[in-house]
């Protein structure tokens, strides 16, 4: 891991449970990291959320999307929760999303991806 990625991990892991996917969408999901969802769902909750709002897979954990939907309206990026997020680029795991943000590498979608965010 390059130094900047090490720094990013050091800051984001303790606070948001950052998984270092390298294509951070935290601000648009109510500052709740969707990569902590056991199904790594980036576009909303699955249909298996328990009646108490906890995760289908990890009953002890609140669904990250229940939290995201709750918190998003309190952020300046409230409307972005309805964005359709492109598939994860699996080559970016472990790289710094800060660097990828400034180089716009994290916005590079597959050529056939034709959905308006």
């Amino acid at each position: 891991m390059r130094p900047i990625a090490v720094l990013e991990a050091a800051v984001k892991k303790p606070v948001w449970g950052c998984q270092m996917c390298g294509q951070c969408v935290l601000h648009s999901t109510g500052m709740t990291c969707p990569m902590n969802c056991p199904k790594t769902l980036r576009n909303g909750p699955c249909g298996g959320v328990r009646p108490d709002g906890h995760c289908e897979v990890k009953p002890e954990m609140r669904c990250v999307w229940v939290k995201a939907v709750e918190r998003a309206p309190k952020t300046p990026w409230a409307h972005e929760i309805d964005d359709i997020r492109q598939p994860v680029d699996n080559r970016l795991w472990g790289t710094s999303s800060w660097v990828n943000y400034f180089t716009k590498r994290d916005k590079v979608a597959p050529k056939g991806w034709r959905v308006e965010a």
Partner: peptide, 26 residues
Amino acid sequence: RVFDLDSIQLIATANAMRNGRYLSGR
């Protein structure tokens, strides 16, 4: 478990194919 795409990305992928392109653009 795989979950390489989520359901919404899968729908969009199927729709791209319906319009004549794989996700790669091929």
